[in-house]
Write a protein that binds this DNA or RNA. Structure first.
Length: 308
DNA sequence: CACCATGTTCCTTG
DNA sequence: CCAAGGAACATGGT
């Protein structure tokens, strides 16, 4: 669920619900989620604190708090692989994997995480190591070129390095490389200048499109039929077709490339799946070669804002 | 049962 | 010291 676009969408939706509300009680069901903050420190700091803002940095959520002592504090959140954050009526029982429950009066703020890889902590030093925000101005071609440097590592693996650029994860790394028509296996140092420019643009467009998707399409906000303010990433019933076309290569092994029809391939890099089109992203594909493409499909891709 | 999973960190090896 | 690869974390879905 959570890469930069998902965290951005969550930030936009959750922020207004939290703003101005006071934390009245704290229940920590999995202390691991707070690390390295202790339960005692966490609880003492947050009780009586008021939410004053919600921001995103990379895949992290930054909750701005006004403490009851008068000071301010940033609470850092990360969803890991399976984390979810939402409000639930205080009278409802918390879900099985609720790691932290913050009572805000009539509602509880729930941090649920089945695998407990996520974080909700008072220690914010993790964000210091992050590279530029891909959607902001300082993510330039020059910055990307410098970050790739002379690394011989495959470009797909490099894109997952959060000090290179913050917020790209396993899904959008494959998607951005497809959009830029660059092979995931190409050594980072071997990208030419125009390939770097193409990749930067592809990363930005891929992420912006995903944000727009999540902001535009009717998301499933309440699993049950009570208006519980729960934010689910699954689509509301009836939106399946749109969802189906969202991704070009991720999790599409064996299915036809939406541009040329060649079966999408899955490979493993750094113990994680990479998906790509072996024709559109040919390793030595440095001259243009469009004759095998289906013009009708190409039209559709172009209308979605693909770079070609 | 086997394998896979949207992330990060730590350990080992070279 | 750095780069690269792999395991670990913990649970659920197919």
């Amino acid at each position: 669920m959570p890469e930069l676009p998902e965290v951005e969408i969550l930030t936009r939706h959750l922020g207004p619900w939290l703003n101005g509300r006071t934390i009245r009680a704290i229940a920590v069901r999995r202390a691991k989620i707070l690390e390295p903050t202790s339960i005692v420190h966490f609880t003492r700091t947050l009780r009586g604190a008021k939410f004053s803002g919600l921001r995103r940095r990379g895949k992290y959520l930054l909750f701005d708090l006004r403490l009851k002592t008068g000071g301010t504090q940033t609470l850092l959140g990360h969803l890991g692989m399976t984390g979810r954050m939402y409000l639930l009526p205080a009278k409802a029982p918390p879900p099985k994997h609720a790691a932290v429950v913050l009572n805000l009066g009539a509602d509880n703020f729930i941090f649920e995480d089945a695998r407990y890889f996520g974080r909700l902590t008072l220690d914010t030093k993790a964000i210091e190591k992050l590279g530029p925000e891909p959607l902001e101005k300082n993510f330039t071609n020059l910055a990307l070129a410098a970050a790739l440097g002379r690394s011989s590592q495959a470009i797909k693996i490099k894109l997952l390095d959060q000090s290179l650029v913050a917020g790209v994860g396993n899904i959008y790394a494959s998607e951005a490389l497809f959009r830029a028509r660059i092979s995931p296996c190409l050594a980072a140092c071997r990208l030419q200048r125009r390939e770097i420019a193409s990749l930067r643009s592809a990363i930005r467009k891929t992420l912006m499109e995903a944000i727009r998707f999540g902001s535009t399409v009717p998301l499933n906000f309440s699993k049950g039929d009570h208006g519980d303010k729960i934010f689910y990433y699954g689509l509301a019933p009836g939106a399946e077709n749109y969802y189906d076309e969202r991704l070009m290569v991720y999790d599409r092994a064996g299915k036809p490339c939406r541009l040329c029809g060649t079966p999408i391939r899955r490979i493993v890099q750094a113990a994680r799946s990479t998906f790509f089109c072996p024709l559109c992203q040919k390793l030595d594909f440095r001259a243009s070669n469009l004759e095998n493409r289906n013009p009708r499909l190409q039209n559709r891709i172009d209308s979605k804002g693909c770079d070609l």
